[in-house]
């Protein structure tokens, strides 16, 4: 029989599954059960309301765009931090974690200070016709902020292990720099970038604290789904809040499955060796 690293396959698998069930699935089930409280008709009525739809669209759409932005910026920042040596690199590296460490409400207060029409940045953007605070763009900025570390941190170890000779090989075979990037580096990073993408996405979909201040929460315009849920809770409409939660959950789950499939496809070369 093959030796495994962890002893007791049955025990460790059973424990892992039980733990997963307890921590993840049980609360979900409770949420779904709670949501049935308003009945199917009530649920459909709630979810087809224009205000609900707009909020869901902003939360999910915004999170998608934010995750995409984070993939691009995260790749750039990760690359610079791994490949280049410059004074203050470690400090810069530590700063990446700040959105992790900061209580979301603190970020929520900081962002309007910057982007409000009379804020540090807002006063320069306002004359250009760019309104950030209290618009969907503000929501996006907050979502980018909170999701940023995920891409950088997932990418860094992979970038560090990327052998330089592979790039040199591409170069000596006649590839231009952009060809080396798009044909060699990017495909090798794709599975990792997708991991970072899904983490950033998941974080942004459910983000509340850092978004609500800068969003302004104007219904049909800059109101996010988690805020609607909180409002329902404040009105003691637990079933309605749960129904919204389920809708948000299902949407996120569907997106994460799509990303996981993409990831599997992009890492077929690594799978093949197993």
């Amino acid at each position: 029989m093959r030796q495994r690293v962890l002893p007791g396959f049955g025990l460790s698998l059973g424990y892992a599954l039980a733990y997963l069930g307890l921590i993840v699935l049980l609360p979900m089930a409770a949420l779904a059960w709670k949501a049935t409280g308003i009945g199917l008709g009530g649920m459909l009525h709630l979810l087809s309301a224009p205000r609900t739809l707009a909020a869901l669209r902003l939360s999910v759409g915004g999170a998608l765009v934010a995750a995409l932005v984070n993939v691009v910026i995260g790749l750039l920042v990760g690359w610079v931090l791994v490949r280049y040596r410059f004074p203050g690199r470690r400090l810069f590296d530590a700063l990446v974690d700040l959105p992790f460490a900061l209580p979301t409400a603190v970020a929520g207060i900081a962002l309007p200070t910057l982007y409000a029409p009379n804020g540090w940045l807002g006063r320069w953007l306002e004359p250009l016709g760019i309104k950030v605070a209290y618009t969907p763009l503000g929501v996006l900025v907050a979502m980018v902020f909170v999701g940023f570390p995920f891409v950088v941190r997932t990418l860094q170890p992979v970038l560090a292990s990327l052998e330089r000779d592979v790039e040199e090989a591409a170069q000596s075979l006649g590839a231009r720099r952009w060809q080396t990037f798009f044909r060699v580096i990017l495909p090798m990073l794709a599975p990792t970038l997708l991991t970072g993408f899904s983490l950033a996405l998941a974080r942004a979909v459910g983000e509340y604290g850092s978004v609500i201040f800068i969003a302004g929460n104007i219904p049909m315009h800059s109101e996010i789904a988690p805020l609607l849920i909180v409002q329902k809770l404040e009105q003691f409409d637990y079933a309605g809040a749960a129904a919204l939660g389920v809708a948000l959950l299902l949407l996120s789950f569907a997106l994460l499955i799509v990303v996981a499939l993409l990831q599997r496809w992009s890492s077929r070369w690594a799978e093949a060796s197993r």
């Binding site: 052998e163 000779d165 592979v166 040199e168 090989a169 591409a170 000596s172 060699v184 495909p187 090798m188 070369w269 690594a270």
Partner: peptide
């Protein structure tokens, strides 16, 4: 020139 690297430097994501 055709270069062969010490650790092969193959593109591992390509067949």
């Amino acid at each position: 020139i055709g270069m062969v690297f010490q650790h092969y430097a193959l593109f591992r994501h390509l067949t």
